[in-house]
Design a protein around this nucleic acid. Sequence first.
DNA 1: TCACCCGAACTGTGATCACAGATCACTAGC
DNA 2: GCTAGTGATCTGTGATCACAGTTCGGGTGA
Lengths: 233, 233
Amino acid sequence: MSSRLALAELPQLERRTLADTAYEALADLLASGRLTPGDRLSLRQSAAALGVSVMPVREAVSRLVADGVLEVAPTRAIRVPVMTARDFRALAETRMAIEGIAAARTAEHRSEAELTAIRRAEAAFRAEAESAEPDCTRAVRLNRDLHFAIYAACGLTPLQEVIARLWLKAGPVINLDLRAHPERLLQGFALRRHAETLVAIEARDGPAAAAALAADIREAADFILSRGGLRDA
Amino acid sequence: MSSRLALAELPQLERRTLADTAYEALADLLASGRLTPGDRLSLRQSAAALGVSVMPVREAVSRLVADGVLEVAPTRAIRVPVMTARDFRALAETRMAIEGIAAARTAEHRSEAELTAIRRAEAAFRAEAESAEPDCTRAVRLNRDLHFAIYAACGLTPLQEVIARLWLKAGPVINLDLRAHPERLLQGFALRRHAETLVAIEARDGPAAAAALAADIREAADFILSRGGLRDA
DNA sequence: TCACCCGAACTGTGATCACAGATCACTAGC
DNA sequence: GCTAGTGATCTGTGATCACAGTTCGGGTGA
């Protein structure tokens, strides 16, 4: 047929189910901290809010439960898990190890284009953090963008997916803390570690990139733990 | 009440839904290689086989899809993903990195009881592999037991969960290969690496444990890739 | 004033039905 | 003989209903 070539250029249009949409909506609620540890979630209420039946929400929730981002209590209530300080520490250590690996690989494998993207993301976060009136919500998103710009260049898709799930799990705690204590952002804690990481990636120094990024995670976690907002183990 | 203490000793009995059971049944099918890459899965047929309605199966499948262990094709067909050689290599490299970390942490933190458990698991696998007529299915299970005995001692629950998901994802490919080429087991490839890992853990040598375990994963992956059973990227 | 109990309203879980789209065997037309 | 089309049957997706267990508020008892 004459249209063979033209048809070949058509992008595969993705199939989005209502469950996918519901998943993203809930994940966003969690990642942005509007759903905080201990909060309960009702299938029917969520469904009503999203304007669909319970079915898609049910599927979305079951995925989030499988990820450990939500949990069903023995009483069958769905809620955001309340992490103990011990749990949070373990999660942070896991993130330091795994995200450190990704940063190291990025430092060793990154292309120039990827380096440019990382530089741009770092600059965007810095601009927000150093601005006269930083917007916390925006800063959190830019911080996430920077981290994932780094992980995207590591060359290992499964590793990225693992990290994305860990972030989803840590999201509620981190954002809850940030909303309660936005001053940390102003002190530019993360800025130095980000700069160190960027320098290491530029220099193709894997171990240094891993160390700097792990330090970033550790300091953020230490800060949150020092606030004492988490339940003891 | 007088029975307060006695009641406190009761273990919380877990609530098992049909969806949980269906999930385990399907996961077992995948991990044991009875469901191989490319196979299609029907909700209704699976439900009939399990003697339940489609609902629990649906939920189980949606979890497995979220884990990347199953996928829904754009035609809405559910199937076991067919990995390209490139995908499998990326998965293996991710596993080498992450499971290496776990092994290193185990070497540095393990208790004597955990070391004993690991020794026992290693001996069990060795006994099966060196027996006159090794049973492949059994050997695969013992190999898994050994690896997870190591990971269980790493002290980081989130890390263990991450690894479990990676194994589920790699399961179909590995088991498919093993069923097609059981001779690798007989040659005792893995035995040396297991022994090296055990020695390193005994000596509390983290880097050595990570290297030995990563080598175990790499050699298994290389063997499978050399068979050419996987589609090119 | 406090503890208890009962019932209404809610919870997640599972089954069933409805529907649009995909498959596949088969046939009509060239 | 081979292709295009057609209809029965299957697919996953979503909505709805049924049910048992939980939660919570209001009343009754002491």
